[in-house]
Design a protein around this nucleic acid. Structure first.
Lengths: 143, 143
DNA sequence: CCTTATTCCTAGTGGTTTTGTAAGATATCC
DNA sequence: GGATATCTTACAAAACCACTAGGAATAAGG
């Protein structure tokens, strides 16, 4: 029932990126240092983020990653789904799953659906902008 | 972000047990057949359920498992926590985890806490009795 | 007592996922 | 052309998942 480090690292990295990439692209080396995450691992995470259209990149010297959208237009849900895949708590309710043969009589389905809905609602309600506000509030260096 | 089959099987098995163990203990063989779950795997699941005081057992011939409490007194949350361990979506908010060193400045903690709360609320709201009602409603054999 | 049906207990196991490393190719700026 | 980036693919150790295996202990019925 855990979100993996791909999701948690990726979310923190996106907040970092949103804060620091306003002037120029930010290199993974910088994010890795600030967030204490393996740079090589971040490469894989950002490959997924890019494939899902959540970040843009510029190669070469002075290159790095940056956001193309306003943070308030990026939902936390989009980031986590890009990194974790489907977020259903049970696989039989995932997007691309053939329904199990007990679906019609399954007494637990209603419960799993309700948990899914409440998670989705929370995830939908939060945007990257909300987390930036939280970050600036918590990090005394930025006050 | 998935609940494993230990949790999903175990919950279904508990519903089965609640319905069928009112007269005499129910053997795992019976539950395994009705629920289409490996009997040997169910043994491990019921070992955990018993260790957490959710079921009682009787050995030997005519033995099996049974409930000691009313289904309305057994929360789904208790069953799932017995089988899955801590249900926090991130490990740093789990019961027995030393807090991570970034806790004080972590901008994502507030989000994870909110997801945890909404999951817990749903899990707290459902009792085994609720799922029995659902099972009887869905299974035409019992109507 | 003996057989049989059951729980109980400990290990093992093959497959998948997680959490990274490693090495090199490609692009960009100066 | 050199330095600094992203990009791509492959590999690997460790953990986790979903079981299976083998046997010990217990209880009921004959």
């Amino acid at each position: 029932m855990r979100i993996s480090t791909k999701g948690t690292y990726g979310l923190r990295a996106m907040i970092d990126l949103a804060i620091f990439s306003q002037v120029r692209p930010v290199s993974l080396k910088k994010i890795a240092a600030r967030q204490e995450i393996s740079e090589l691992y971040l490469e894989q995470i950002f490959a997924k983020l890019k494939k899902n259209g959540l970040v843009m990149s510029k190669r070469g010297i002075q290159g790095g990653y940056y956001l193309d959208q306003d943070p308030q237009d990026i939902k936390v849900k989009d980031i986590l789904e890009a990194l974790e895949g489907d977020l259903s708590v049970v696989s039989c309710l995932a997007e691309n799953s053939e329904p199990c043969n007990r679906s019609a009589i399954c007494p637990t389905k209603v419960l799993w659906k309700r948990i899914n809905r409440s998670v989705q609602r929370t995830l939908d309600a939060y945007t990257l902008e909300d987390l930036i506000v939280e970050a600036k509030y918590k990090d005394s260096d930025l006050l």
